[in-house]
């Protein structure tokens, strides 16, 4: 894909730009935020937007803009690690199923069934009870949820390729199952994985928000967009601004990611449109 192609898909360009912008905003918070986010000053709480605090201050007197920057980073990191776990475990499983077939395929499918059978929320509750709530808990729960998704996508994509003549030729040339999976199947499903990864990233950001709302996600003094939204929920009627800021940020990031995902799908290969399904879970 090149810039010209990007020009032909304006929504993709907008989506990618917005998502990158938010991701950068989060990254910058590693080195710089307008105010330190741990610094609490009750005397300065609930200040509205002003020149000093661009987005005002929260219930503990922390700078909202700094919190949004760091919160965006947390949300991206949690969702991103969830996707990496999903790809790291799910894709090898999916490819192995196709390359080996038979018993291996049956096992992979059952494993994916079992993982899928555990709703993400329940997994999160169990992990939180075992290891305590926190970002890592959210990452694991989201990651586990992503594994069967990527396993199925990888298997689906690879099945179509496995029947091609050149794969059969490679097999005749003496290439083993692992080599076929790595050299021929994987490169050909990369675009499919990128598209599904974008979608799972947006679902992950929503899932992090949901887990934080029931107290299983990010824990203070760390912050995430979901945690900010949860903290502001009970103050909505008094200080609506405090929930509008993280709420809108979540909505915008998720829309940007979804538009990017849809756009990528169209741009990379129009035939992929009906492959990766946007699973209705979060």
């Amino acid at each position: 894909m090149n810039w010209q192609q990007l020009g032909r898909h304006p929504s993709l360009a907008i989506g990618l730009m917005a998502a990158t912008l938010f991701a950068l905003l989060g990254l910058v918070s590693l080195w710089w935020t307008p105010f330190p986010i741990e610094q609490i000053s009750i005397a300065r709480r609930f200040l509205g937007p002003a020149t000093e605090h661009w987005l005002g201050t929260d219930h503990l007197g922390r700078d909202m803009f700094s919190l949004v920057m760091r919160g965006t980073l947390t949300s991206f990191v949690v969702a991103g690690l969830g996707v990496i776990i999903g790809i790291g475990v799910g894709v090898p499983l999916g490819l192995a199923a196709v390359a080996w077939g038979g018993m291996v395929e049956w096992l992979v499918l059952r494993l994916s069934d079992i993982t899928f059978a555990f709703p993400a929320v329940i997994v999160a509750i169990l992990i939180a009870a075992l290891f305590g709530p926190g970002e890592i808990n959210a990452v694991i729960a989201i990651g586990i949820f992503n594994i069967p998704v990527f396993a199925r996508v990888a298997r689906g994509g690879a099945l179509a390729i496995a029947t091609q003549d050149y794969v059969a030729a490679a097999r005749l040339a003496g290439l083993g199952n692992a080599a076929i999976a790595a050299r021929h199947l994987l490169p050909n499903i990369m675009s499919l994985l990128i598209v599904q990864g974008t979608i799972q990233l947006s679902l992950g950001i929503l899932a992090e928000a949901g887990l934080s709302y029931i107290g299983l996600g990010t824990q203070p003094p760390a912050t995430s967009l979901g945690l900010m939204l949860r903290d502001a929920q009970s103050l909505f009627l008094i200080h609506p601004w405090l929930s509008v800021v993280p709420g809108l940020t979540i909505v915008l990031i998720v829309i940007a990611l979804n538009i990017s995902g849809d756009g990528l799908r169209d741009a990379i290969d129009p035939r992929l449109r009906h492959e990766g399904l946007n699973h209705g879970a979060g």
Partner: peptide
């Protein structure tokens, strides 16, 4: 523990 007074006081005391 999971009560608001503890969680909030904890953050403030840490600061």
């Amino acid at each position: 523990p999971p009560v608001a007074y503890a969680r909030l006081s904890g953050q403030i005391i840490a600061s």
